[in-house]
């Protein structure tokens, strides 16, 4: 088993003809993801690489292919619109890779997505992968392998770093989810933890957080109250100064809230194991399998 995506995932790529969209569509197809359609307004009727039909609208794409998932690679000014289009078309899982979406757009978009009964992952995220089954987004498939670890992270390359260590140590993954580094995003840590708790194949969860906001603290509370499976946590940004945005729009310590120390303390109080370094996940996860 896995969470959110598997062999039944039928994927639409919004922005399939763009630079990033076309590159990563090829990567996803190569990995074995079932890409059923692309959407680029004005290019309906064409095909991508001679195999994937392109539609003008997401509604057309869904009607023609029965797609249930969409991944978005459109530029930031159009991302909010693209997310809402997918939600309105009845897509149940929407993954927005785009970095740089205005945050006030997200305050309007996310309630709309929820009203339409869809799940949003991102924006500003690497997407997700259920190794051996399906990959939606940009996580490099070759560093992952099937296995019993569920992984959820706010980061991209730091996720790769941890997955790489786990895979090399022989510990594969059910699903790796990058939820994104923006201050307002769709699916959060708690959503992923709950899904991993329900997934019979996931035995241990690795959770990679960073400074800024209180999502990790809320997640720690959830672990304490609702999780029976062990969760190993890590927080990036222990040396980050307050008040400065560390790359990710959401990675900023405001006043005295959002510090790494505060989050690590919350993890410990929830009975979670805390990795001091990315490589420490290897021993901490292994002990709990």
């Amino acid at each position: 088993m896995s969470i959110f995506i598997d062999q039944s995932t039928k994927l639409i790529v919004q922005g399939i003809t763009g630079r990033d969209g076309s590159f990563h569509t090829k990567q996803m197809i190569e990995y074995g993801t079932c890409v059923v359609a692309g959407v680029t307004p004005g290019k309906g009727g064409q095909t991508f690489e001679g195999t994937v039909p392109i539609f003008n609208t997401v509604a057309d794409a869904v009607a023609a292919t029965g797609a249930n998932t969409s991944v978005i690679y459109v530029p930031p000014p159009f991302a909010a619109d693209a997310i809402m289009e997918a939600a309105a078309a009845g897509v149940s899982l929407i993954v927005c890779i785009t970095e740089g979406v205005p945050v006030l757009d997200m305050t309007r978009v996310y309630p709309y997505v929820q009203e339409n009964g869809a799940r949003l992952i991102g924006p500003n995220c690497p997407g997700l992968i259920s190794p051996g089954k399906s990959k939606v987004g940009i996580i490099p498939g070759r560093i992952c392998t099937p296995g019993p670890v569920g992984l959820v992270s706010r980061s991209g390359t730091l996720t790769y770093e941890v997955v790489y260590h786990l895979t090399r140590a022989g510990m594969g993954q059910t699903t790796c989810v990058g939820i994104g580094g923006d201050p307002i995003n769709g699916t959060n840590f708690i959503d992923c933890l709950a899904a991993f708790e329900r997934d019979p194949d996931t035995k241990v969860i690795a959770m990679i957080g960073e400074i800024g906001g209180t999502d990790e603290q809320n997640a720690a509370q959830f672990v304490k109250e609702h999780m029976t499976k062990p969760v190993v946590g890590f927080i990036a940004g222990q040396t980050a100064p307050p008040g400065r945005r560390m790359g990710h729009a959401g990675a900023i310590i405001s006043g005295s809230t959002g510090t790494a120390a505060e989050k690590i303390q919350a993890f410990k109080e929830a009975g979670m194991a805390v990795a001091q370094r990315p490589v420490d996940f290897v021993s901490l996860v292994r002990e709990r399998l």
């Binding site: 980061s155 991209g156 960073e210 400074i211 222990q238």
Partner: peptide, 17 residues
């Protein structure tokens, strides 16, 4: 010099460590 924000923060932390 690092690629990715999360990894860049983790690198800073490792230097401190």
């Amino acid at each position: 010099i690092v690629n990715g924000a999360g990894l860049a923060m983790a690198t800073m932390d490792m230097i401190k460590h």
